[in-house]
Amino acid sequence: MLMRSISAVIAAAGKARGLRRQRSGERFIEGWILLAGILAIVILLGIVFFLIREGAPIFLHTNPWQFFSGAKWYPVSEPPTFGILPFLVSTMIVTIVSTAIAIPIGIACAAYLAEVASPRVRNMVKPLVELLAGIPSVVMGFIGLMLLSPLVQSTFNLNTGLTGFSAAIMLSMMSLPIIISVSEDALRAVPDDFKQASYALGATRWETIRHVSIPAALSGITAAVMLGVGRAIGETMTVLMVAGGALAVPQSPTEPMMPMTAAIASGIGNAVRGGLQYQALFAIGLVLFFITLGVNLIASRVLERQKRRFAR
């Protein structure tokens, strides 16, 4: 009895020692992970700080109201004028049109992959769709420039094919992989019980997709769309090459226009460092940063809700 209790005590002490060793190793790794997490935040804050430091001084020259509502952008004139309304409107038009094209195609494709396609087809198509995300944006720009813009020009009988609409089509292709991939995951996360119950009530496959699967996965699909929107807003090379780059405030998608990313890219190479144009371009970058940050925050919120809904 005594022997047993002693050996138990010894065993417990040994375990405790092992535990302590494990703890210190664990603490070390935890420290590293913490550091990595903090590093990401530090980088983010650093970028924000840098953007504000370089961009904010422009508001001493042009007041914010003029900056956001001004329709004239003449950065290399004497004196320069900085109004970013044309860029804001262009970004809005291009993003809305590209999303409007990408949503129906993306969700239909995701529904097909998740609900209709055989596992064989799904396992073949999904990696291919994700491969589409790997096509460099400059290649998409080339395709838009050489193939799409002449087509848009002749179809709509326009003066030039380099329009916001052409850019939006290319952007929709670039956001499709994200939308399809994330929506498909969301659709597949819908518990099978829901679908079985629907079939048991005599619903067809289409009725099940439309009335059960998609509504149940709606928050995941919304997040997918938001991520696609974020991609479309931030994309630079394609819009720079295809959108046409006119400085007028666009009235319709079929006009040449210059979204914010293109405005930054097309001006920064020749800007005098620390000069007014440089500051104004950084201020555009700041605006862009907050827009994409907002979109991504909404997306992660919605995605979080989706996860909680089906958490088991």
Binding site: L145, P150, N159, T160, L162, M241, G245, L247, P256, M258
Partner: peptide, 28 residues
């Protein structure tokens, strides 16, 4: 000195791009 590019002028990122657009557009 007050003259500026009009708002409807297309600003293209490369000279090659401008030449190819002009080659393909009778009104450019």
């Amino acid at each position: 000195k007050s003259l500026e590019y009009g708002p409807n002028v297309l600003m293209l990122p490369s000279t090659e791009g401008g030449v190819s657009e002009t080659a393909g557009n009778p009104n450019a």
